[in-house]
């Protein structure tokens, strides 16, 4: 089924596409996280803004990926930008939801104590709220990352796509080995990211495992 000579012959292509896949994912989740964090900081205390902004992100999330690409190409061309706009767009809903849930999970009494002991706003955010919200934030990053790894495949249609390109080439040249390699590596990447981030989620919250006696 799999022809190792084909794998060997296409090794530079496979390796570079794996790196591209990873890069597209990391940039998308990273940018998504920055945008979501800024959005959350802006809207968290405003009952008027929180609904419309999260609503907008959820609408973006529901747009089919092919339709979104088709909509963007006339504006931003077949570019890295187009790919990332789409990929980042899909992370926003997941990440803002988890950031908000994470901040909401911080116990009110801890916040009151922080205020009463003389924490400033920024200090309270970084030293109390963010650490306590981290388990839920990492959970959001995990879902967003796995989702993005899958979506990157679709950007093969505009000339990116990482491992999606490998598979597409396999289809076009009726090369089963390339299709299979693209498939297996994508799944492996998603699994590795999932397990790695699950582990990270546990290590960022050692205190939650402290229930002994």
């Amino acid at each position: 089924m799999i022809r190792w000579d084909v794998v060997q012959g296409n090794f530079p292509l496979i390796a570079s596409k794996l790196v591209e896949h990873l890069a597209l994912t990391i940039v998308a989740v990273g940018l998504g996280l920055v945008i979501s964090a800024l959005a959350v900081l802006a809207i968290r205390d405003s009952r008027r803004l929180i609904g419309p902004v999260t609503g907008f992100f959820s609408v973006v999330y529901t747009i089919p990926s092919l339709a979104l690409l088709a909509f963007l190409v006339p504006i931003t061309r077949l570019s890295f930008l187009t790919a990332e706009i789409a990929l980042v767009g899909y992370t926003l809903f997941i990440l803002t939801r988890n950031l908000l849930a994470g901040l909401a999970s911080v116990p009110l009494d801890a916040l009151e104590a922080a205020d009463a002991m003389g924490y400033g706003r920024m200090r309270r955010l970084w030293q109390v709220e963010v650490p306590l919200a981290l388990p839920l934030i990492v959970a959001g990053i995990r879902i967003a990352t796995v989702t993005t790894i899958g979506l990157v495949m679709v950007t093969a249609l505009i000339g990116f796509g990482g491992l999606g390109q490998v598979m597409l080439r396999g289809y076009n040249f009726r090369n089963d080995t390339l299709v299979l390699v693209g498939f297996v590596l994508t799944v492996a990447l998603a699994l590795a990211a999932d397990l790695g981030l699950a582990w990270l989620g546990r290590t960022v919250a050692p205190w939650s495992r402290a229930r002994i006696g």
């Binding site: 116990p107 009494d109 801890a110 104590a113 009463a116 003389g118 205190w207 939650s208």
Partner: peptide, 22 residues
């Protein structure tokens, strides 16, 4: 200055409000 004032006053509440991550 409000943070300065608060650092000079001890505060204990019913729910204690310990930081769970520390």
């Amino acid at each position: 200055e409000v943070t300065d004032l608060r650092r000079s006053i001890g505060y204990v509440i019913q729910q204690v409000g310990l930081f769970p991550h520390q």
